[in-house]
């Protein structure tokens, strides 16, 4: 009756047999002790090392390392002012040579009706929006356009998942991609909760909004902010009390996209209706 079991290759389940039992127990005990020791060392090792180094030197060094950067940039999108003209999308394409069918920034139109909501972004609103179908228009209770882009999160999931350190956050708040170092594995594309990243069909590397890093470093505003005709897009330095973005925070209620994701975006939305996802 037991024969099939005896012939079976040894499974991972422990088999009780008198002979090797003690040896195995000892081995397991040693093995577990070793694992526990290694875990303790891994968790507390660096801390212990830092404490040992510590003393009078460590505190000032830490303080200077975390010195506030000169600029702390932020982006503000005022949904109340967006007219959905698509100038920002066109300017971004031109400034950054973004290939067709992919977008670093795009505009979404929401049409809310009693029966549900229509959300669309035809070709990223590159040519603006056509008129809403008459049937939907009759039922619409409200409608608005919302520009979307990389949120340059304080806690960016795309940076966490990059296996080679090709995407990073600078001290001034830019989340950038290093195209030289990027493998094009697209982990970051999947990690971004805002869908702001894509694989560039020309370079086959990860691509996204850079807040026009090259322009800001040359004292200019990002291209989309430059051409926005109705001040729906603002960009500025939070360390500068006179900048437009700092002014907005004084009296406007603001929101971020998907606060539940705890990404802590530095792209703030003013006047964002609750329907926006």
């Amino acid at each position: 009756m037991n024969k099939p079991l005896e012939n079976r290759p040894q499974s991972s389940r422990p088999v009780i047999d008198a002979g090797g039992d003690d040896a195995r127990r000892e081995f397991l005990r040693n093995f577990l002790a070793g694992t526990a020791t290694a875990t303790v060392l891994m968790v507390f090792g660096p801390g212990v090392a830092a404490l040992a180094q510590g003393g009078s030197d460590s505190a000032p060094a830490g303080a200077s390392g975390k010195a506030a950067p000169k600029h702390q940039f932020a982006y503000v999108i005022n949904v109340n002012n967006c007219i959905g003209c698509g100038n920002c999308v066109r300017a971004c394409k031109r400034e950054n040579q973004v290939p067709s069918a992919v977008f670093r920034t795009w505009v979404e139109r929401y049409v809310v009706t009693g029966e549900g909501m229509y959300v669309e972004s035809p070709n990223g609103a590159l040519e603006g929006f056509s008129q809403v179908n008459a049937g939907i228009r009759e039922k619409a209770t409200k409608s608005f356009t919302v520009p979307k882009m990389c949120n340059h999160c304080e806690n960016p999931p795309c940076v966490q998942v990059c296996p080679v350190g090709a995407t990073f956050k600078t001290k001034e708040g830019f989340v950038l991609v290093d195209p030289e170092h990027c493998l094009g594995c697209a982990y970051c594309v999947q990690a971004c909760p805002y869908g702001a990243r894509f694989i560039n069909p020309v370079t086959h590397k990860s691509d996204k909004c850079t807040w026009c890093y090259h322009r800001v470093k040359n004292g200019k505003l990002p291209a989309c902010v430059t051409v926005c005709p109705n001040k729906a897009r603002l960009f500025g330095d939070l360390n500068d009390p006179e900048s437009e973005v700092t002014q907005i925070f004084k009296d406007e209620a603001w929101m971020v996209l998907k606060p539940g994701m705890h990404t802590d975006p530095t792209c703030f939305y003013v006047g964002m209706p609750r329907e926006v996802v």
Partner: peptide, 23 residues
């Protein structure tokens, strides 16, 4: 850059991109 874990020259190269819009 061992502190922030990226290639330091990447930001220099990103800043060197030519400007299209002048403001």
């Amino acid at each position: 850059n061992y502190e922030h874990w990226y290639r330091g020259d990447a930001v220099v190269e990103a800043a060197a991109q030519p400007l299209v819009y002048g403001g």
